[in-house]
Design a protein around this nucleic acid. Structure first.
Lengths: 230, 230
DNA sequence: TTAATAGTGTCTCTCAGACATTATCAC
DNA sequence: GTGATAATGTCTGAGAGACACTATTAA
């Protein structure tokens, strides 16, 4: 059946994005195996036809194995392929990107994992395979999707304030937003619900704490599945 | 090297979309080989690691082989995978979609190719593999991208009038558009240029004929490559 | 002249941003 | 009270849609 089909390597790669010090960062791991052993690269791995239901499952498995992060916004990005991207031969990589609150990743920082600012061109370009291009595509996608969608909330912890959320939007979009308009939009999106407790930073009026409505979080992941099948 | 990787089938599938009688149609081909020989399905084929530079090249090859269409807007849609979608085994299909003017496809209609309206649920659902889901995702993508991008012009021949173009937008978006606003938008997009000749349908004022500016068409395909890598 | 569609001028209403004001905390 | 930030009320300007009007053809 598979007559003239010399083995094509099927892999998945993960772009884990988080917000650190008001900058978008990507998680890179030091490779333990060849090729490019020792280099800092995106986490990834082979697709296992026996144990993975589909490439999304493979991506979730890699996420669990490398980060023990159980839940996050995860969406298919694009598929990268060709003879040159992997020295082992002609390969296909289905890339996924995830948005993760910093708290879930900060604990993993160490000799095996680093967070690299996506604007750090030299660090990003130093990545092996075509991972620089994958990161670039992921950042582009997140920025494009951020304008008043619910995407950015996945970069914050469960509870957050509106000024915090606005700061996330401003970081992703790269421009300041009007406070009144931002709040109007958030209100009509009806995505958030107040959390009775309050927070405070310093000696000033405390901000109302919000959380994403459960229905909305579910609806989002459902709709993103409708767009991106696996 | 490839120790525990039982062969994964790598294929590409093509969603060829066109506009026929004011409705979006998808080109389906009658399969000659098993599985599902005789069924109407999306054109597709194996990725050939020897001859295809990447999956996009494979998609272009399939496009040429099946339709002899040389140029069209072609963009990666998403990758579909899993053990159940192809009876031959665990498979990956990188799906691409293309927008093609009707003239380029109409000549191919016949015993081997049909154009199916995308709203024709029974015909779409009758497709083998997971092609119904792929078509649905492609239609969704085109509709999402259509609001005042240059995408819809690829569904028209080289020369067209503004009322024709507005009708395309209205078909894709599924709602009537304001004529004045539409023209204002088109003017500020600065995407079109007048073609000296004029056209006419009946006994009324003839419409100005337009074509897409070359720079703009090129810029579009470049940027879409930046987004969707291959 | 009439019918039919192409194309434009203009008014209005809506919505987003600017600005100002009030609210609430620590000190 | 003072200073700092949160939250809201209100005004205004830009832009999109509604409508009316003019333009140009065939019959």
């Amino acid at each position: 059946m598979a007559t003239n089909h010399p083995s094509i390597l099927c892999t998945v790669d993960l772009v884990l994005l988080t917000l650190k010090q008001d900058r978008l960062h990507v998680a890179v791991f030091q490779r333990e195996k060849e090729p490019f052993a020792g280099a800092w690269a995106l986490p990834g791995g082979y697709v296992h036809a026996q144990e993975d239901y589909d490439t999304r499952s493979a991506a979730l498995r890699v996420l669990r194995e490398k980060t023990s992060v159980d839940s996050a916004f995860l969406e298919q990005l694009a598929t990268f392929s060709g003879p040159g991207r992997d020295p082992r031969g002609w390969s296909i990589s289905v890339a996924y990107y995830a948005l993760v609150p910093l708290e879930k990743l900060a604990a993993l920082e160490g000799p095996g994992m680093r967070l690299v600012a996506v604007e750090d061109a030299s660090a990003v370009k130093a990545m092996p395979f075509d991972h620089a291009a994958i990161v670039q595509a992921a950042v582009q996608r997140v920025r494009d999707k951020s304008s008043y969608s619910s995407l950015p909330v996945f970069l914050l912890p469960e509870h957050f304030t509106l000024p915090q959320l606005q700061a996330v939007y401003e970081t992703l979009l790269g421009e300041p937003l009007n406070k009144v308009s931002f709040r109007r939009k958030m209100q009509e999106l009806d995505m958030l619900e107040e959390v009775p407790g309050e927070q405070v930073g310093g000696r000033h009026r405390p901000a109302q704490v919000y959380a994403v409505r459960k229905e909305f979080a579910e609806r989002l992941s459902l709709s993103s599945r409708a767009f991106n099948p696996d």
